[in-house]
Design a protein around this nucleic acid. Structure first.
Lengths: 354, 354
DNA sequence: GTGTTTCATATGAACGTTCAAATGGATAGA
DNA sequence: TCTATCCATTTGAACGTTCATATGAAACAC
């Protein structure tokens, strides 16, 4: 904290103009319609811009252009159950993708749907954002209707789980295809008795993944009766559910799990039984969360291509922002199986000692 | 997508004025200096505001007030190792805290320090934010100097790990105090041989936590020789490190762990040895991540009060934004031990079956 | 009835941009 | 040499606020 030495004030378009000996509108033209300038003035102006480090003030362009170049996204309280690393990976991807298109992401905390809508209301009425990216769609989701009614541009990461009277753009990961791929992966490794550890019936995402497992098993002619268990998410729950199946007369030799936490639990149960994960019993999780690479052996998992989803969310949203009548697009992208030790017969259980 | 029925345009201060039969500046006064209005006009204007649902346009006030009411925060690529649930919990808390003070949080993706500074440059030169909240301070951190030099308001969550020629406000969790409390907690439960599972030497946070363990042990007259092991973070690593200690002649009866991932690994090793977590060998982790409640038995952990830290970060930052000469404040807040089954003698290992 | 005070409301200007339209100087055609 | 054409540049206005200041009506004292 030395003496109050004045920092140079942030340059405005006028100071650049003075510096380049032109009127300030010419500077504006240099930046927004360079073809209107004579080449020599253009370079002169651009050099002045460079020298002063001028960047147009956001607030002024916002006011003038009636836009904010900001996208709203809800920050979830990940406090509760579940390792929601998906959210944070998606958030990073979304932020990068937005930035590449010259947009920023403004985050808002909201606890439930109503709370989130209140935030929409606030942000929209103040003109603080150009649009929203939604996530975590679910049945009876009031958010989409609210936004559609007010013609606020938005895109949803997460499909609609029921019919709506309006259309909107959304992207989603094909959970069904994910568990199909997981099941096929295990079958390709020689497994015939493949179990499924899922969430209780009623969750859209969970039911979708379960259906994929059933479909793949039916397709491959594999048994499923007595091989599926469902319970609340968690490592402990996964352990208990897996232990239950392993204790049966004809236990599964592989598990498709609805989440990585369940899968870690299953690995735990397998080892507790003295079996080797990967060699004796294979496991595959879902989401490819940090958990997957932090366990030993590393866990196979179904990975959602969040980066490309985020990018496409931004693309779709900006299309709508640029032209509110732009086409409504929806697409389901397929996740990919990331094969690691937990589903690899050559990969033994972790060593016992140090 | 019905007919192009025109939505009512967003009300401006002028439309409110027309509606309330006053000039538009009176509306401004009603909102910003209500004591200047006669009570009856005030209510009339406020009713008009209410009826039209008027909210001042953000961009216009930004321009006029030379402020954005936006705080910048870096979104980390949590892609790599480690379950960085801390980040996302902090982010939620920060966003709520900011909102309570009328500020928003704008997120930006950055990969390293240089990249982050480039984002600072961008946001600051465009006047897109009023200040920053930093996180993840480390040795040779160039970010603080950059911001301080340009007199950009900021607050750091994370202490400076070296002397700087300038001062700035920061908050941090006292990792030292955290492991002291953890060690004391285990000692209070009757443990005498308490081991430590840490990160390799050289990480600021890890060394701090290690030092706390050593200090508490010395204070309590407990042995530490041959009871500490260090390695890269991870569940698998925790298992191996703990297994190493448990295999010794005089194994520890309790573990203080530098992270929850390490602690989960330790629990794993304990059970693998046929011992009961909590009853036979106690474990306590650090950070109280979702992992802690997802394992069985639930894991004791040292919890950082991220919510209050976020709130204080916002308070300090806004002080600086309001008055750049406001006092520089630093404070270290003590984390608290959250005792759960893994350090509770009455809590046995998980059931074997379903 | 005139002059002063007081208070509620209105006027003017500015924040920094961008866009539409006007200016003015050069070049070319008659 | 005078006018038409063209192009680079400038002028004017607007986006929606807030702040400083001016106006004007009522209330009061003389």
């Amino acid at each position: 904290m030395s003496q109050p030495e004045q920092l140079p004030a942030r340059p405005t378009i006028k100071s650049v103009a003075r510096h380049a000996q032109v009127s300030y509108q010419t500077v504006s033209n240099a930046l927004n319609a360079p073809e209107r300038l004579r080449p020599d003035t253009l370079t002169r102006v651009l050099r002045a811009v460079e020298e002063l480090g001028y960047r147009p003030t956001q607030a002024a362009r916002n006011l003038r252009l009636q836009t904010t170049r900001l996208i709203g996204f809800r920050s979830t309280r990940s406090d509760g159950q579940g390792v929601s690393s998906i959210e944070s990976r998606f958030l990073y991807a979304l932020t990068s993708a937005a930035r590449d298109r010259g947009y920023g992401v403004i985050l808002f905390a909201a606890d439930g749907d109503e709370d989130e809508i209140a935030m929409f209301e606030d942000l929209v009425s103040r003109g603080a954002v150009d649009g929203f990216v939604l996530s975590g769609s679910h049945r009876h989701d009031p958010r989409t209707a609210w936004l559609a009614e007010r013609e606020v541009p938005f895109v949803s990461f997460g499909r609609p789980w029921e019919k709506t009277s309006f259309d909107y753009s959304w992207l989603d990961v094909d959970g069904h295809a994910g568990t199909v791929a997981a099941t096929e992966h295990l079958a390709a490794n020689g497994h015939r008795r493949i179990g499924f550890i899922g969430w209780p019936e009623g969750s859209e995402v969970g039911d979708d993944r379960y259906a994929g497992y059933l479909a793949a098993a039916a397709d491959l002619g594999l048994p499923t009766r007595g091989l599926t268990v469902r319970g609340l998410d968690g490592i402990g729950a996964g352990t208990q559910l897996a232990a239950g199946l392993l204790g049966k007369a004809h236990p599964p030799t592989a598990f498709v799990c609805v989440s990585d936490a369940m899968a870690v639990g299953a690995m735990h149960a397998i080892e507790h039984r003295g079996l080797a994960v990967g060699r004796d019993v294979a496991v595959i999780g879902f989401d490819d969360s940090p958990l997957a690479t932090v366990v030993q052996p590393a866990m196979s998992s179904v990975r959602q291509p969040l980066e490309s989803i985020a990018r496409r969310c931004v693309d779709l949203l900006l299309d709508r922002i640029d032209d509110p009548r732009s086409a409504v697009l929806t697409s389901v992208v397929e996740p990919t199986v990331i094969a690691r030790g937990s589903s690899n017969p050559d990969h033994p259980s972790p060593p016992d000692g140090a």
